[in-house]
Structure formats: C-alpha cells, structure tokens
Design a binder for these strands. Sequence first.
DNA 1: AAGTGGTCTAGACCACTCC
DNA 2: GAGTGGTCTAGACCACTTA
Lengths: 233, 233
Amino acid sequence: MTESSAISWQSIRDEVLRRIRAREWRPGQLIPHEADLATEFGCARTTVNRALREVADSGMIERRRRAGTRVALHPVRRATLEIPVLRVEIERRGQAYGFTLLSRAAELPPPGICARMGSAPDRPLLHLTGLHTADGQPHALEDRWIATDAIPAAAQADFTTISPNEWLVLNVPFEGGDLTFSAHAASEGEARALRCAPGEALFVTERSTFQAGRSLTSVRLVFAPGHRVHTRL
Amino acid sequence: MTESSAISWQSIRDEVLRRIRAREWRPGQLIPHEADLATEFGCARTTVNRALREVADSGMIERRRRAGTRVALHPVRRATLEIPVLRVEIERRGQAYGFTLLSRAAELPPPGICARMGSAPDRPLLHLTGLHTADGQPHALEDRWIATDAIPAAAQADFTTISPNEWLVLNVPFEGGDLTFSAHAASEGEARALRCAPGEALFVTERSTFQAGRSLTSVRLVFAPGHRVHTRL
DNA sequence: AAGTGGTCTAGACCACTCC
DNA sequence: GAGTGGTCTAGACCACTTA
C-alpha cells in the first residue's frame, strides 16, 4: 500500500536510550508495555520487541514476563572482548608467529588446578608448557593442564607443530568457561623465558573451559612486558 | 491445527553449532541458505534467521547479503565483560565503599592524554585524582581527565560526595569508547596511595569515551595488588 | 487468574552485493 | 540483474510470574 517507510527497530532502540538518558524514564521505573510502545511508534509489537531485546542485552533495561520492563538501577556497561587464537592475533599484526613446546608430562595437578578444574588430586593430568613468540621475541608463556580422560585425543596430539592453544580450539568444542585477567610479578623462571627482569609486572590471563559439566582444560598465559588487551565499548 | 510444537530458534542454533564443531560444515565453507534450512527444519525462515543471527553474534559464522553465510575461518571467541560502577562492584561484595578526592585542577594535558582524547595541548582540561576504598582499604587509584568544553557541568560538580566515575555514568551519556587492560609496576606515588611496595605488579584499566566525535573523558584506574577481572565465556 | 514478555508463522518488501 | 540476508507486519499461542 502507500504505507511506506516502516519504523526501524534501531530507531526505536535509539529513542528508548534517549528517554533513559534524558531521565524521562528513570532508573528502577517501569516503562510502557510493548503493545503500548507499538501503538505509540506505529509499528508491530515484534519490532518493539526486537528493539527492547537489544537494549536489554546492553544491560540498560531488565525485562521479566508479567513484571514488565524496568530501567536498570545500575546501568552496567558491557564490553565485548574478542579472544582470537594467539597465532592469529600475532599474524594480524604482521609478525611471524612461533611456538616452542617446553615441557610435556602427565603429572599430578597442584591444589590450585584441582580446585579450578574440579579434578581429583590423585589423578594425573597432561601438563604442557610452551612459549609463544612474535618475530622471534617472547610473547607469552603458556602453562596448561588438560583432562586427558575428557579429551583422550590430547594424549596423542603433537604439540610441537601446533600449539595446544590452537589444537584445542580446533578439536575440542566447549560450552562454557571462565576467564580472568590479573597482574603478576615475573618469577625467576618466567623472567628467563620471557627475557625480562624478575619481578617485572606482567599481564596474566587464566582460562578454564568445560563441557557437559566436565572440566576440559585450564591454561595460564603470562605475557611479555607491555602487553595490553584492548576492546571497544 | 494439529501442527503442534514448533521448532525453537535455540534448537536450530544448537544444531548449527553441532554441525560446525562436527566439521560437517568446515571453516570457510558456505552453509545452506536460510530458506533451505527453513525447509529442512520445517519452520519459518524468520526462525532460522533468528538462530543464525545469534550464531553470527557469537563469531562462529559470517553473513553477508547475496554472498551467503560462511563458517568463520578463525572462530573468534567473544566474552562479555560487565563493567559496573566501582561503588556497586564493591558493595556487591558486601564491603563499604569510600571515595577520597585527592586533587582537582584545570591543567594542560600531557602528550599521552592529548593523543588519546584528540585534545589540543594548549587547552586545559579538568584533571582529577582520587582513591576508591573498600572497607577502608585502598582499592583503586583514579586518574581522570575531563573535557570541560564537552561537559561544562563537570566544572561545577562536587566530586567529594560522588566519585567522578559515578557522576559521569549518571550524567554523561556516551556513544562509544575504548577500554584497555594492562599490568604496570607501582610508582612511588601509587605505592604510597595503595599502600603497597613500589614496583609491585598492579592491574591497570584505561578507558576513554566519546560522543558525537568529541572525546569526553579519559580515565586510568590502577588497582591495589591482587585485583582480578573475571568473566564467563 | 491474568497480564506481560517470548516466540513462531507466512508473507512481503527492501538492501546489499556479487556476477 | 538476480540472489541472499535483513527487516517489518499482523496475528497467534505460549511461558512465566505476580497479584
């Protein structure tokens, strides 16, 4: 028909955000129902739903059936971090990637790993350490534990030609995990491997992944000095 | 009709992920069109679209009009970081939050800040420093620059009763920003304020926000030793 | 019990891009 | 020009939650 130019969900999202920032809708306050907004904006409820879902994903509003939609009391900012395989990250910067396996053994895990992986202290895990390099310079030291009963194939994998990092991404699906960032003073061994001074401030990430309730692997990456993780809001 | 139990978009998403992980659809490969999948799964194309949009958001597939949908070559993991106001973060842990304004002055910004904020080196900015505490213990040292020409109200704000962190979240909408994590050895001044040893490894976040192409504020938070940022994958 | 968001459908048109 | 994803509609039913 001549009913041209429908309202876009983006424009509704923007208007909703504007009202929240302009305090027309205040934190904690209930906002109109989807049906009312659909009437107001002259569009289908589906379109309003799409817009509000987007705003809810960003953390600015909270929605519950029957209870309605409220402006969040503490507007939490959400940032999306992209976590590429280390090799890809380095090659994207135009540098040559390298990996050296430093050690490989079945060992009894220390208490910290047991706790994070929910593993029995008397059951050996595959323990790998290795160094990632960029243009020959140390980039990150990897210390990884793998639950070989959950990932039997890992026992046969050749981690000298492909890093455990990449092998796992390619071969082991997981449904979830934890990621932690922290700072850490370089130990003697880390300083040697990363060619920096002992005690120097290093950026550390720790990651654990699980599947079907079983812990798969836990890794600690200690980065060479100056490493930064960047993202956009 | 007796056409009960429609297919859910979640089940389609799961099946798509399964096929990718099972290598039925390999990295770089084109997957069937939405219409074909809709036929296969016996549902509306809208439902397939919803599922694939979700998978695309997670970074596993890439979609382009006319070009179709491909399995991503480098399956980038995406993690969502929640960045609450410091006060809320601390209170959520059941600790008492405190903020002390340490300094406040209009100053010419150093080169680093000029570069990050795109500000002229001869134009003074509002420079604030302060200490966030948890149960009276130092939690983070804040060093902030505010573009007063973009945020005139900041010149009048009382940052002794509310931290700049929180005042800005409440009063200044922004459309985007940068966030960086790094590690840093405590300077003499930082060590004094955070009551730690000079040279100790500290976790640092730096954030800049902008609106309508103008830089609004740039902040550097240096956290007390042991601070960790945690998220789920 | 009833109100609200969540989702599905069938169809349509549009926007983008590759050929 | 044609094919693919992106979005909108109008209507329907369902799921969840609270009164």
